[in-house]
Write a protein that binds this DNA or RNA. Structure first.
Lengths: 232, 232
DNA sequence: CTGTATCCGTGTTGATACTG
DNA sequence: CAGTATCAACACGGATACAG
C-alpha cells in the first residue's frame, strides 16, 4: 500500500528548530505582514477594515490568516464591542504591547538604510511610533508639552516629558499645540526638513497653538547618518 | 501578441509599500532565515558550510539566496581569505553589526512566550547573544571578570564589567573562569537552573578556574515571567 | 572540499470574486 | 462590513548535478 501523507502532528506551520529566543520570536511574528499588523494595533484596537486600509497591499485572506495566527500565539485578542456598535475589533494583548521595542530596534536600524524611501504611504501608527523611536532625549531636555495630532480621522494626544513621549488615542483638547495633516506631511516637517510655513502655505498642514513650541518640537528627532557601502 | 512576462526592472522581491522604517527593515531582513543568518555572523565571519551547520533546516540554495540578498542590502560583505586558506567568508558590515539591538528586542520579548521550547538545538552565537540580552545589570553590580567559553570547536572570551558584557571570538587564555560544554548545556545551567555539579557529574560540562565566580555568574541572567493567556 | 545552479514537489502568498 | 473560496504565482526545502 502507499504510505499515507501524514499531516505532521507537530507544527503545521514552518518553525525554525532553534532554541534561540529571537528565532522563536520569528516563529511567532516572522511571517509576512505579521509585524505590520501588530504595528497598527499598538496604539489601540482596530477593526478589520481599518487594518486593511492602513496596510496597503495586504489582501483580505492574508489579513484573516495573520490575525488568526497572532491570536493563536497569544499576541492579539479579538473583542466584540459593546451592543450599540456590534462590530468586532482586534487588540494586542498585554504581552503583544511589549513588542514595541522590536519596532524601535527595527526602525532605528533601518533609518540608516540608503535604500529607505520616505515618500511611500505612511500610516498614523507609523508616525507616532517613529516619534517615540527617534526622540533625542538630550535635545528634549526638560521640555514638557502636550501635543495633539489630527491625522485624517484619527486623533492622538501625546505628552512630552522628561525625554519621553506618552501617546494616547483620543481627543486633542487641551493640547499646547495641535498638528493637523497627513502623516507623510508631518513626517516631511520632522524628518525631511520641510519648513512649516511652506507646508501650511500649500494647505497641507495646519498648526494650532504654540508656534514656537512647534518649531522646537521639530528639532527633537534627528536622523542618523546613512550607512555607507562597504567593499567586499 | 501575448504580453511578455516582465521581470520587473527594480527589485524582483516583494516589498511593503510603506514608508515606516520598521517596515523597510522587514523589506531588507524580513525574509525567512535572513535574520538567523545575520545572528550567526554577529560575532565574526563565517564560511558557507559553517552557516549551514549552525542553521538546522536551511537548504543550500536558500542560504545562497539570503547571502546574496543581504549583500545587496549592504548588510553582509563577502571576503576572500588571505592566500593560505583560499576560502571565502561572509561577514556583517559595520551597519549589519548594528542590528544587534533587533535580536535583543526579539529575544527579550520571546523569553516571555509560553510556547518557547529551550530543548531545541542551540548555536554558540545564540548563547552568547542571549547573555548580552538577558544580563541583569543590577545583579552584576560592579562585578568584573573574564569568562571564557569552549563551545564545541569555538572559543570565546567575554569580559563582564560595569554591567555589560564584551564578547570576542578567540582563545580563552587568561580567563578567570572557563566553561566548556555544548551551548545547550550551558544554557541549562544559566536559564534552566540545572546545578553545575550535576552537569559536571554527567560529563556534559567542565568548569575551570574560579568556581565561586561560576556560581555567581549563573545568577546574573534572570528570566521574565511567562505571559499569561488573555481572554478574547 | 566549497559553493552555486537547476529541477521539482509542496506550501504560502496575493488578487479577484463571492457569501453571510 | 467581515470575512471565505478559488486560483495563479511565487518561495521554500530537498536532491542532485555542476564549477572552482
Amino acid at each position: 500500500m502507499k504510505s499515507e501523507k501524514i499531516t505532521s502532528p507537530g507544527p503545521p506551520r514552518r518553525w525554525y528548530e532553534d532554541a534561540c529566543a529571537a528565532a522563536h520570536a520569528l516563529d511567532l511574528l516572522g511571517e509576512r505582514w505579521a509585524l505590520l499588523v501588530m504595528r497598527e494595533l499598538i496604539f489601540g484596537p482596530r477593526r478589520f477594515s481599518e487594518l486593511r486600509a492602513s496596510l496597503p497591499g495586504i489582501s483580505a485572506n492574508v489579513l484573516t490568516q495573520r490575525l488568526a495566527g497572532l491570536e493563536a500565539a497569544g499576541v492579539v485578542a479579538r473583542r466584540r464591542l459593546p451592543p450599540p456598535a456590534s462590530a468586532q475589533v482586534y487588540a494586542l494583548t498585554e504581552w503583544g504591547m511589549e513588542s514595541e521595542p522590536i519596532f524601535q530596534a527595527l526602525g532605528r536600524w533601518a533609518a540608516r538604510s540608503p535604500l529607505h524611501d520616505p515618500t511611500l504611504p505612511f500610516s498614523a501608527a507609523s508616525l507616532l511610533l517613529s516619534l517615540r523611536t527617534m526622540l533625542d532625549a538630550g535635545r528634549a531636555g526638560e521640555l514638557a508639552a502636550r501635543i495633539g495630532f489630527r491625522l485624517g480621522e484619527e486623533r492622538y494626544l501625546t505628552r512630552l516629558e522628561a525625554g519621553q513621549i506618552a501617546i494616547a488615542a483620543g481627543p486633542v483638547e487641551g493640547a499646547d499645540l495641535v498638528l493637523d495633516g497627513a502623516p507623510a506631511v508631518i513626517a516631511a516637517a520632522i524628518y525631511g526638513g520641510q519648513p512649516l510655513e511652506a507646508l501650511e502655505a500649500a494647505g497641507a498642514l495646519r498648526v494650532e497653538g504654540d508656534r514656537a513650541l512647534a518649531a522646537r518640537f521639530l528639532t527633537l528627532f534627528p536622523l542618523p547618518p546613512k550607512a555607507g557601502l562597504e567593499k567586499g
